[in-house]
């Protein structure tokens, strides 16, 4: 907010570097996808983990640099921490419930 003009122009370079990094990671995702596929038909946990890890790195770059979270006030972080907590609850408790149904599951022998 209170940065001078020079401050902003020095940021411009940084933004382009981030852009380059994002491009690189996009390429990496696709490459990893092709590589993991080699000799392994179908979906594997490795795909999932690597794909999402790269996505997380990209997301952090966008969040920290483009959305200025790096230099943001504590209040915003608090809001985001709340949100993350609720988001995690939504994701993991549903999965938790799904992974633990009363056995036997119907019709396994169908």
């Amino acid at each position: 907010m209170s940065h001078g003009h020079e401050d902003h122009s020095s940021h411009i370079k940084e933004y382009w570097w981030v852009f380059a990094a994002l491009m690189f990671f996009t390429g990496l995702t696709v490459a990893v996808w092709g590589w993991f596929d080699f000799g392994r038909p179908g979906f594997s946990a490795g795909d999932c983990v690597v794909g999402l890890l790269i996505a997380c790195v990209k997301a952090s770059l966008v969040g920290l640099i483009f959305m200025h979270l790096r230099e943001e006030r504590g209040l915003i972080y608090k809001i985001l921490v709340f949100t993350f907590y609720f988001f995690a609850a939504l994701m993991f408790l549903c999965l938790f419930a799904l992974s633990d149904p009363i056995r036997p599951v119907f019709g396994l022998n169908l």
Binding site: Y85, F86, A89, L93, F96, A97, D100, P101, I102
Partner: peptide, 24 residues
Amino acid sequence: GFFSFIVWAHHMYMTGMGAGVTTF
């Protein structure tokens, strides 16, 4: 407020969730 987000499945005991989830 915090806890209210992680208790919802007590409305769903009847759906036959497993013992672990129910305990939680």
